[in-house]
Design a protein around this nucleic acid. Structure first.
Lengths: 379, 379
DNA sequence: AGCAGTTTGTTCGTAAGCTTTACTAACAAA
DNA sequence: TTTGTTAGTAAAGCTTACGAACAAACTGCT
């Protein structure tokens, strides 16, 4: 679906647009309407989209021919006029594979339906594999999920740690020993199914937007073995000039030193917040008050780092993803209070900070969103 | 030119697209090509855009009928084939009015040609005016610039301080005593010419992008009586969830206190960087070394505030606008060195920080960019 | 000088896409 | 039975872009 159409102001047109692109856009618009609102008649869709009933009928005919949309009977309610023929996405026609490579020691995957519901799972311990061996594990994981599928597979979405470009090349992923690895191309070649590879935190942000009810200007902070984030601005994922947007783990926080980081600097966000560090600190705590102080300080540091970002981007929401027992509670409270104390209440007084509602599946569900969006124009 | 077409991935189509929208886009594409490359033949444009010669001829005929494009003779060079008829934007057909309301005590405006060159100026001392009186000064300023115009006016662009929404309503501008002021609507009604009102720092960022050679992922930091910024991400201005993106003046910097701010907090960026504060601090300095220390500290604070933003957004460039004698030199050096020390060299090692090349005219030229972009699809 | 080859820009006909207009089918209300 | 409403379709027309073909104008070679 390229070139796409966006709702915002257009500054520099850069690519020609043909009638079929407009058609593709309107097609997606119909799909999107059905995806979100559920069962609707053609006339309903026409009213909703502004297209005429004729055009909607035509588009729907196309979509039905491709088995993407089905008629599901007539509307039952009592009112004048010809009863409406109800339509819906053919939600049972395809399945999606979502893969999460972001955990430290395990690759996880799932088989999902078009609504993002998880139908089956698979996981594979990484066992220290890197480079080609790690990629082979990804292939094996996909194989086992394909074996579980009971419908044609719409596509494979992969959330990878590290820096991933728009073509799905993993430019760098230190933990996996990957540099310039054309994961998307390799998987496409191997499985002959559409594949999309995206950064794990960006995937998580998309999942939270599509399934977690997050707003359109939000940041998802992912705390685990490292600390990363994904940004959605005006509903669009931000990639950055070198595809490294969201990489805040090694930003130095505060002006009062801090522990030495693996990267060589002192006081990086990860030295306060990454789970190994935090767990170690908590293990040495003897009282509940001490535990609380440690968690408060970690949250405070996160708030200090995020306050300038909230101010610069005018975010409306920050979502945390990671171990609930660490993040939810004192730490989250410290973060939001710190941000409040460091930004203007007039603008950011009703900034929301919360835990994700999607739990551990956030990345693989976000990867599925990429497939939905790429293949159906829906999310 | 709405709905527009963007080059990025489309996540959620939200508006129908008709053939004429596609036409409008291709029309802008032709204009854009001519605007940037100068004189070209129809065949050149076809090659550049990917459209066919036939389509380009048709679009050019439209544009010539509207006096936006003119033929300027035949190509002179010696080569086989029929000589090309060269085209260009009719750069002398229209003029633009740009207004800068961001200075503390003066409203400034200029008459510009389509290339952003300044043909005439006007200014009006604010003399403490606020509310309606201040708006009357804007009207008077526009009147005096219209009187200078020697061509039809393409539009009026206004860069206003404060928070401005997408409809050109100034939601809040404390210095001018404006709240929810429909400046764009009022000016359009008064002058019957297209008007666009935008935040001053956003305008500055656009100017730097169009005329200053800035990259597509940049932040423009505007230091004056207050401190604000404008962001361009993937070439698109960021407005934020409440149109307050870029408002970093009252973000608290560092973890070691700081002077009390007018906003009530302590250690806001403005307490270190706003020109009244900085001038006062420098005035009390007795030695050059002391001056340098003050400037270094101010730059350091800016760097501390920007480092998380650079990390989160993966910016490639930061541009400073404001008094050269304060910003250029020690302060800028401190800023970039601080950012470097607080971010990952692998990602942000070649971040560029520099002064604007557009001087005092940056805002009004940015306002003109908005007119060009809105009326001609060009920038 | 003449002819082949190249490039430009136009004319003509066609395909795609959306709209308007007008229709049929199917229902409720009176 | 009549009237009015809603859903969906059919036909015709407009807009937009394309491809094929061509004339004009030029270079270069024989």
């Amino acid at each position: 679906m390229n070139p796409g159409f966006a709702s915002g102001r257009e500054l520099r047109p850069t690519q020609k647009v043909l009638p079929e692109h407009a058609r593709g856009h309107n097609r997606s618009l119909v799909m999107q309407t059905l995806y979100r609102e559920g069962t609707l008649s053609r006339a309903d869709i026409a009213r909703e989209t502004g297209l005429t009933r004729v055009t909607v009928s035509d588009l729907v005919a196309d979509l039905m021919a491709e088995n993407l949309v089905i008629e599901i009977g007539q509307r039952e309610d009592v009112r004048p006029g010809k009863p409406a023929t109800l339509l819906d996405l053919n939600r049972d026609a395809f399945q999606i594979i979502g893969i999460d490579l972001s955990e430290y020691a395990t690759f996880r995957g799932a088989l999902l339906d078009l609504d993002g519901k998880i139908l089956g799972r698979a996981e594979l311990p990484l066992a220290g594999s890197t480079a080609d061996a790690a990629q082979d594990k990804v292939l094996a994981l996909v194989d086992s999920l394909i074996a579980q599928a009971t419908r044609p597979i719409l596509g494979i979405g992969v959330g990878s740690p590290g820096v991933v470009d728009l073509a799905g090349v993993v430019l760098t992923a230190p933990n996996l020993g990957w540099t310039n690895r054309s994961l998307q191309r390799d998987l496409t070649a191997r499985f002959s199914i559409p594949v999309v590879v995206i950064n794990d935190a960006n995937a998580a942000a998309l999942a939270e937007h599509s399934f977690g009810g997050a707003t359109s200007d939000m940041m998802l902070v992912k705390v685990g073995h490292g600390v990363g984030s994904g940004l959605l601005l005006a509903g669009i994922p931000l990639f950055g000039s070198r595809f490294a947007a969201g990489e805040i783990g090694h930003v130095v926080v505060g002006t009062d030193g801090g522990a030495t980081c693996v990267c060589g600097k002192s006081g990086c966000l990860e030295t306060w917040l990454a789970t190994p560090r935090l767990d170690a600190a908590l293990a040495s705590a003897t009282t509940a008050a001490e535990r609380d102080r440690i968690l408060w300080e970690a949250g405070e540091r996160l708030g200090i780092a995020l306050a300038p970002v909230v101010g610069a981007l005018d975010l409306s929401e920050i979502v945390l993803s990671g171990p609930t027992e660490l993040l939810d509670g004192t730490l989250a409270r410290a973060t939001i209070e710190t941000i409040r104390a460091r930004t203007m209440p007039e603008f950011h007084g009703n900034l929301v900070l919360r835990m994700t509602t999607l739990g551990e599946d956030i990345v693989l569900r976000g990867a599925a969103v990429m497939v939905l969006s790429g293949q159906l124009g829906v999310s």
